[in-house]
Design a protein around this nucleic acid. Structure first.
Length: 956
RNA sequence: GCAGGGGUAGCGAAGUCUGGUCAAACGCGCAGGACUUAAGAUCCUGUUCCUUAGUGGAUCCGAGGGUUCAAAUCCCUUCCCCUGCACCA
């Protein structure tokens, strides 16, 4: 099969039928997918999105649209750079991995090694993989105009992004500010999941602690908490007797904090000057002034106070914190322990829990209660204590109400109090914010990871001025499929605030006004689809980087600044500039973007905002459709599971058309697509079967009217053509493919059983081209092959989509056919049940004439009402009254289940005629004689059972 | 935590917006039959249960309630599963 496919891919490429230029006489259709990221080989996730877009766009092409489907490539950000760095650092795992990739294309092992070695230059990775990716995509039979391809590292892309960000800046959409990030002390840079040891398995979060200042001599002891709302329950301070603390100047204040904390504070926007070391032991037994409760509290020993976490001091709230409760209890129950630290046991013993929060399921002292319930009695039960803390935290967060002693916060929910207390304390200068990692973490070179606050981080401010409103307008006018995602967009829009849009590292475009920053890889790909419109011309005209300046995009994209001025500033000829402008104006906006749901909250939302910011209304995107996840053999695809499927696998093992058919038919566009090797094997056979059958049809056809016996068949085919057209036009590829792959085949099989050779030839002639064209978007290669074998010139991909001839849709004919089919099945069943394998005669008794009138009337009445009383009344007021008894027997069951009334009610005469036409066939089928009679004339007791559409059967 | 999606036959998956013709498309699997020396492929038939000369009846779309003449579909409660959440493309 592959040879057939490569042959047609080559022919299409040579004929350049998918390379399109503006054509004012034709309507355009411009469809895009997110450009794929370069990293290793393409898999079925990529295959899904391009294939769906392709099938759909082929339908448009066959409806006389000038269809543009381009694909570019994304290389911004860390991954490509990461590969290059790993290879530079002789990371054997990565080198082996990429050797394996490269060997897919380069057989010679030495050559492959050399190529991989060259990958320490990221550009080499891009240059190597992009042609391969284009080939792999093309092997799926997608109709892409590759002349318009580019990468996000190319100058035309970067110049466009520069232009965009200058526009953002002019409009005040960019702001600078502080921003916490995970930061490696070793790399001296922000880090992501990939840079952190085990970052993928145990993700690291940023946690926000509230720092509280406890007056102590001329300084403050700084305690850190995640629960500022519990501050009214403080009873004491915890310090680690084994840790070293420092006294340090932090701005204008003196703080006592762990040595580690002092180091971290330097990265969190604080001036730090260490004055002296203080041993934790020396603090034990002393007192400091607790904020909020405004009282002196004892500093007590607590080994769980970790100098590596936050400040190394913890304020103790034993009523609500299990750790604090047990820590205190251990001291209170051990005079010896108190003595060890020179503490006054009676004073310790006197410390009482202070109730502060009332949560559902708990009394005044949740920590005490849960420890008693879970039998926790020692700080050594770390795991149990952590779980208990979680549980209380959850209960408090969701159901907790602040108690009366919490002053102005009394009666408030915990959720609300938490925020308010924090903000108020900060305002008063007795609290501060500190960020800590959610777990101890190191980077891949074992350097420590902390949270650092970047001072002049660039943000895109989605709340700036009227931007959100404009974005909403844009969304409002867009078609979103499935529509439920429109609401989700709205939710995302509401939540979008400031987003960091530049980074310190990675590939990409530098911020034009601050070259220390690289524009972040999602922010640099929000309007690139506009470049497809002119990318081929930029190449053709051999434009240079410096020519694609502000004036260039202002003129070509916005028609601003005037042609003369643009010519002067860009040094591009008037003719070329005009042509570029026309090309852009013709193709843009993007009519349709097909993407993965995961992109909604970021890429797609940014795309909408970007267009709203930069472009006039008529250039805003028109439509977004979503596809679902891709899994393989019921599981998430992953290399470790060995269930990944590459495009090369598809090409070599199954063929593009089988894949296309299988994928479209196995799930609806918005649902999860599950790759199943066994099932695609089936589809491969099915495609072959269709192919052979259609070739067969092409050799056995003759023109002419299909004839009476195929009337119902034609009706069904026309109806299904209509349905398939409707489905594909709404991108319901599943319904569409089910019809063209299976339903048409079933119908054809059935009708061909009934027809003689001559009749079949005419049916074949009627069906062949129509069916073939219906199949073309789905299995284009096979369709082209058959088309050429029919002796047709040109490509079927460029043919006109078949129209459904509505005048041939004939419900009565279909009904009659069904009636006869059911009749035959019924006869078989009866013969089976009655155990009469060889019947002498089959008597078919047509229902009494009055029943047709009754059924028809009942059907009509049911449209209006379901009320039995009024239905009876209406019927009895007609001359059907004389059958009142029988009617009353039948009516309840008909009302209960109206499906017993046939969809179409013929009259007695027509029904008799329908059966008469097939009388002979029934006789042949059962090798017996058939007698037809009317109920009124029949002496059979069974005759009364006959109903419209359901003749009585008597076999003897 | 925040936001969103979903639970339908042995399995996958339509149907849900717009309630009725839904025991539920289509595919896979399974069973029986045809073809074949045989296997595979292909074709036909069947595939909730009971009952039966085709009729009929019961159960039924995670669980429980409600609205309605009528609910897989609308409303409420509840259980379970999945996805995303910003130096990550």
């Amino acid at each position: 099969m592959t040879t057939l496919e490569t042959k047609w891919q080559k022919k299409c490429e040579e004929a350049k039928i998918f390379e399109v230029d503006s054509d004012m006489k034709k309507k355009k259709f411009f469809i895009t997918i997110p450009y794929p990221y370069i990293s290793g080989s393409l898999h079925i996730g990529h295959a899904r999105v391009v294939t769906e877009a392709d099938v759909y766009s082929r339908y448009y092409r066959m409806n006389n649209y000038n269809v543009l489907f381009p694909i570019a490539f994304h290389i911004s950000g860390m991954p490509v750079l990461g590969i290059a760095t790993a290879i530079k650092n002789k990371d054997t795992k990565k080198i082996e991995l990429y050797k394996a990739y490269v060997k897919n294309y380069v057989a010679d092992s030495k050559k492959a090694e050399k190529i991989v070695a060259s990958f320490e230059d990221p550009r080499k990775i891009v240059d190597f993989f992009i042609p391969k990716m284009k080939d792999e995509f093309s092997s799926l039979g997608i109709a892409v105009d590759w002349r318009r391809s580019f990468t996000s590292g190319d100058f035309e892309h970067q110049k466009l992004v520069e232009w965009q960000f200058k526009k953002y800046k002019e409009k005040g959409y960019l702001v600078q500010g502080k921003h916490p990030v995970l930061y490696s002390l070793e790399y001296k840079n922000a880090v992501g999941e990939d840079d952190i040891a085990d970052g993928d398995i145990y993700p690291v979060d940023k946690q926000e602690f509230t720092l509280l200042k406890f007056k102590f001599d001329d300084a403050f002891i700084i305690a850190a908490t995640l629960r500022p709302e519990t501050m009214y329950g403080q009873t004491n301070m915890w310090a680690n007797p084994e840790a070293d603390y420092v006294k340090a100047e932090i701005g204008k204040e003196k703080w006592i904090i762990s040595r580690e904390c002092a180091e971290k504070l330097k990265y969190q926007d604080k001036e730090v000057k260490i004055l002296k070391t203080i041993s934790g032991k020396d603090l034990i037994g002393k007192k400091c002034l607790a904020p909020v409760v405004e009282k002196k509290v004892l500093i007590l020993p607590f080994k769980k106070a970790n100098p590596n976490i936050a400040t190394g001091f913890v304020t103790s709230v034993p009523s609500d914190a299990p750790f604090d409760y047990i820590g205190l209890k251990e001291l209170q129950s051990s005079p010896a322990l108190c003595k060890k630290y020179n503490l006054d046991y009676r004073e310790i013993k006197n410390i009482k829990l202070i109730p502060i929060i009332k949560s559902k399921g708990y009394g005044d002292h949740p920590a005490k209660e849960i420890c008693e319930k879970n039998k926790i009695s020692s700080l050594a039960q770390e795991k149990e204590l952590s779980e208990a803390t979680q549980e209380i935290y959850c209960a408090g967060f969701h159901t907790g109400i602040m108690q009366d002693n919490c002053k102005q916060y009394a009666g408030m929910s915990v959720q609300q109090a938490k925020e308010e207390i924090k903000t108020n304390l900060i305002k008063k200068g007795i609290a501060d914010i500190f960020y800590e990692t959610s777990r101890p973490a190191v980077d891949r070179s074992s350097g420590k990871i902390i949270v650092a606050i970047l001072d002049n981080q660039w943000f895109i401010d989605f709340n700036a001025k009227n931007w959100k409103q404009t974005a909403h307008n844009c969304l409002e006018n867009m078609e979103i499929v499935p529509n439920k995602y429109k609401k989700q967009f709205e939710d995302v829009f509401a939540w979008l605030d400031k987003r960091p849009c530049a980074r310190r590292r990675g590939l990409g475009t530098k911020l034009p006004f601050d070259k220390n920053w690289v524009i972040e890889s999602l922010s640099d790909s929000t309007i690139y689809m506009s470049l497809y419109a002119i990318a081929n011309k930029i190449k053709k005209f051999k434009l240079k980087e410096e020519q694609l300046n502000n004036e260039f995009f202002n003129y070509v994209y916005l028609s601003e600044g005037g042609l003369k001025e643009a010519v002067k500033k860009t040094k591009i000829s008037e003719k070329q500039l005009k042509e570029l402008r026309e090309e852009f104006d013709y193709w843009y906006p993007n009519d349709h973007r097909h993407t993965f749901t995961a992109h909604l909250a970021n890429h797609l939302s940014f795309m909408i905002f970007a267009h709203a910011a930069i472009f006039p209304k008529e250039k805003w995107p028109k439509k977004i459709t979503f596809h679902g996840m891709v899994i393989s053999e019921g599981e998430k695809m992953s290399k470790s599971k060995g269930n990944t499927v590459s495009l090369l696998d598809i090409k070599n093992k199954f063929g593009a058309d089988s894949f296309r058919a299988f994928m479209c038919n196995s799930t609806s566009v918005e649902s999860t697509f599950d790759w199943k090797t066994a099932e695609i094997e089936h589809m491969k056979k099915h495609v072959e079967l269709l192919y052979n059958m259609l070739i067969g049809l092409s050799k056995n056809k003759s023109p002419g009217d299909v004839g009476e016996k195929a009337k119902a068949f034609v009706s069904k085919i026309e109806k299904k053509t209509q349905k398939a057209t409707e489905a594909i036009s709404q991108m319901d590829l599943r319904t569409y493919s089910t019809i063209v792959l299976h339903e048409l085949l079933t119908e054809y099989k059935q009708v061909s059983k009934k027809l003689d050779e001559n009749e079949i030839k005419k049916v074949n002639n009627y069906l062949l081209e129509k069916w073939l064209k219906l199949l073309t978007p789905l299995i284009p290669h096979h369709a082209e092959e058959i088309w050429s074998r029919l002796g047709k010139k040109g490509f079927i991909s460029l043919e006109k989509w078949p129209e459904s001839d509505v005048s041939k849709i004939n419900p009565v004919a279909e009904y009659q056919e069904n009636l006869v089919n059911d009749l035959i099945i019924d006869i078989k069943t009866v013969m089976n049940l009655a155990k009469i394998p060889n019947a002498k005669t089959i008597k078919i008794i047509i229902s009494a004439d009055w029943k047709y009138h009754f059924f028809a009337m009942l059907k009509e009445l049911l449209e209006k009402t379901r009320d039995q009383g009024s239905i009876i009344k209406s019927i009895m007021s007609t001359n059907l009254k004389k059958y009142g008894n029988e009617i009353m027997k039948m009516l309840p069951s008909l009302l209960k289940d109206p499906s017993k009334i046939p969809i179409i009610i013929l009259d007695q005469k027509t029904e008799l005629q329908s059966i008469e036409t097939v009388k002979k066939d029934i006789e042949t089928e059962f090798r017996t004689s058939v007698i037809l009679e009317l109920c009124e004339e029949s002496k059979e007791p069974k005759a009364k059972q006959s109903n419209p559409g359901k003749p009585a059967i008597v076999v003897t």
